[in-house]
Design a binder for these strands. Structure first.
Lengths: 222, 222
DNA sequence: TCTTGTCCGAATGTCGACATTAGGAGGGTG
DNA sequence: CACCCTCCTAATGTCGACATTCGGACAAGA
């Protein structure tokens, strides 16, 4: 059994605010005022402060001394930073996961890919596919059994989602076709011991997404 | 000119507590009680809470729901995690720095290495050498011009120092001889464009330190 | 007109009091 | 004797009030 996670109000508050940012309720640049959020969420300012600190740690917001907190803007620079950093840690994660993943963990990865394939065939919306994508990588990091590496991923994850969602909004997703095959290949490589090749593919898998997004972001707005 | 940094009390509190952990005032496993620290530092509990959250983010302490905060113990597992993660991000940092460092930044790196050489010759103590080591890498990350990467380093840095200090305390440092040459080589590689080789050397530079420390930590206590 | 100084509102930074929780001491029971 | 239940204490979690800081509006002076 998985142990129940006991969190305080600030954890829940962070989830709400994060969701609001990711689903576009709070657009980039929006000022997040503590009293306002505290009123909306029905918690004290202290809890909101902790939540915002957490989100800043995740790179979703930025705050300055006595000048408040604002939602981070997704510029090509940000996308490049997020994806290059992710590619780098993904390399380590996949290498470790290949060494340490149990057969049942690998089977569960297969399961996720199967669900992806199903989602693609049934024409599910992009957000659903994205959730599966994230879940896949969550499992890889868990299989790597490297606490600090996983924390680095958790800190980056929200930014990754934000970048991918931005891409979807720009209407140039078109990753439906590739996503299943790429992840299928990743599982196969994790299963094998061809670590060198694995590291390269894992890195390229991420960098490919980056190139596409930075390209989209550079184009004139539609 | 470099803009002055305005921080709140929690920043200062975090510095004090961090120093206390690094200089051995708070040994691993010590419980850090909020009211106690607030009294000692002369600030409110809120500020101490923020400081502890920051230190947890840096991996120096761990806290559980309603069970308080404790100083992280340096086990071989922790050392391995810290150094493998560091090696991974250092690879990206050195690659970027090689592309982006200005001549003056490279010259300043030379300066740091010179100071190292001087320190070794004059028989300075290990802590001083360590400070120069950290400063060297700080400058590399700054030259890489990658905000998120630098933040990842800042989060890891304290843990790196803690690991290295532990090593010094174990009395098996013996890195006096290597440290200058290794960093000198790094600067040369950053200057050149042999990026592939640079990435490998940068990674090995870190992994070597890890091997030594995990070895030391495995040995019976002296 | 441009600069400089002052005031003001609104937000964050800080604080101490109250509520909640974990873990142990103590006693009762099988 | 082991087990479990209850209570108690000491710590953290939460809250609202007060202090400080920022940036803009406004006016006086060069």
């Amino acid at each position: 059994m998985k142990k129940v996670e006991r969190r305080g109000l600030s954890g829940g508050a962070a989830d709400r605010i994060r969701d609001a940012i990711l689903d576009g309720t709070f657009l980039p640049g929006t000022a997040l005022r503590e009293v306002e959020l505290a009123g909306t969420l029905g918690v004290s300012r202290g809890a909101v402060r902790e939540a915002l600190a957490q989100l800043e740690h995740e790179g979703l917001v930025q705050s300055e001394w006595h000048r408040g907190t604002r939602v981070t803007d997704v510029t090509p620079e940000v996308a490049e930073e997020v994806y290059t950093l992710r590619a780098t840690i993904e390399r380590l994660a996949s290498t470790l996961a290949a060494q340490r993943a149990t057969p049942s963990e690998l089977a569960e990865l297969d399961g996720v890919v199967d669900r992806m394939a199903l989602a693609v065939e049934s024409g599910a919306d992009a957000a659903e596919l994205l959730a599966l994508d994230i879940e896949f990588h969550d499992r890889v990091y868990r299989a790597a059994r490297h606490r600090r590496l996983r924390e680095a991923w958790l800190a980056l994850r929200s930014s990754v989602r934000l970048c991918q969602l931005t891409r979807i909004r720009l209407g140039r997703a078109g990753y439906r076709g590739l996503v299943v095959d790429e992840h299928r290949e990743l599982v196969e490589l994790l299963r094998g011991t061809a670590e060198k090749r694995l590291a390269r593919v894992a890195e390229e898998h991420v960098l490919g997404a980056m190139t596409a997004l930075t390209h989209d972001l550079t184009l004139p707005a539609t």
